[in-house]
């Protein structure tokens, strides 16, 4: 859970940095996308590792959930939590929502199934016009909103996930655990703001076609 989660977090951060090049204009983003494509075999290796991390993460989550349900066959009639938080209690739910987001997102930008009208355009240099695809998509308010909601779910999932990872890997101590929780929350917030900035900026015409 912790190991695969960390790999996915690494991807989320790198992907965010890549995506933010949209604010540098079409030339930078399209050149960046083109460069990624030219990694060829390496890109596929990265994709396979990423897919494996997703699979391991889901498999571990399913096993954990089954075992933990089984560990308390008779639930309490009255149960008053005193320490946990909503994010920790809904990791399964936010995980499923993230997976649905991911499927939609891949159908959208990678496979061109969800919004085919924006897919496959080329820029003046004959490269895939990723910039136009993203901007045209987010000009539709509900698409932009869906992405912001997806990022909120991601933020919620990560806000528990990161500090939890530090505890599971045995990194936290009495002093550092509250610190990890605060830093984890801050990183989750930054990731939310960074990603959401893109659809919001397009929606408010701060990034134009």
């Amino acid at each position: 859970m912790a190991g695969s989660g960390l790999m996915l977090l690494g991807f989320v951060v790198l992907h965010l940095l890549g995506n933010l090049t949209i604010f540098l204009g079409p030339e930078t983003l399209n050149a960046y996308a083109e460069k990624l494509r030219h990694f060829g075999l390496l890109l596929w290796v990265a994709r396979v590792i990423l897919l494996a991390a997703v699979a391991v993460h889901i498999w571990a989550a399913v096993v954990l959930t089954i075992e933990n349900r089984r560990a308390r066959p008779q639930p309490y009639q009255q149960y008053v939590p005193a320490a946990t938080n909503p994010a920790a209690l809904t990791m399964g739910l936010t995980g499923i929502l993230l997976l649905s987001y991911l499927v939609y997102h891949l159908l959208h930008f990678t496979w061109g199934v969800a919004h085919p009208q924006f897919f496959g355009a080329q820029d003046a240099l004959g490269r895939r016009d990723v910039y136009a695809m993203v901007v045209r998509s987010f000009e539709i308010p509900w698409v932009a909103l869906l992405y912001v909601v997806g990022m909120a779910v991601l933020c919620f999932h990560l806000s528990h996930g990161m500090a939890s990872t530090c505890q599971t890997l045995g990194l936290s101590t009495e002093r550092t655990r509250p610190l990890f929780e605060r830093i984890g929350g801050m990183i989750a917030g930054l990731i939310f703001l960074g990603y959401s900035a893109i659809p919001v900026a397009v929606l408010f015409r701060m990034v134009r076609p």
Partner: peptide
């Protein structure tokens, strides 16, 4: 028994207030 997913309800309920730092150390 189930698996720890770091809710820390144990420490809140413990009559001797045993700290979850010991869980991190066990993991380590």
């Amino acid at each position: 028994f189930g698996n720890c997913t770091n809710h820390y309800e144990c420490m809140a309920a413990c009559p001797k207030q045993i700290h979850v730092k010991f869980i991190a150390r066990l993991n380590r």
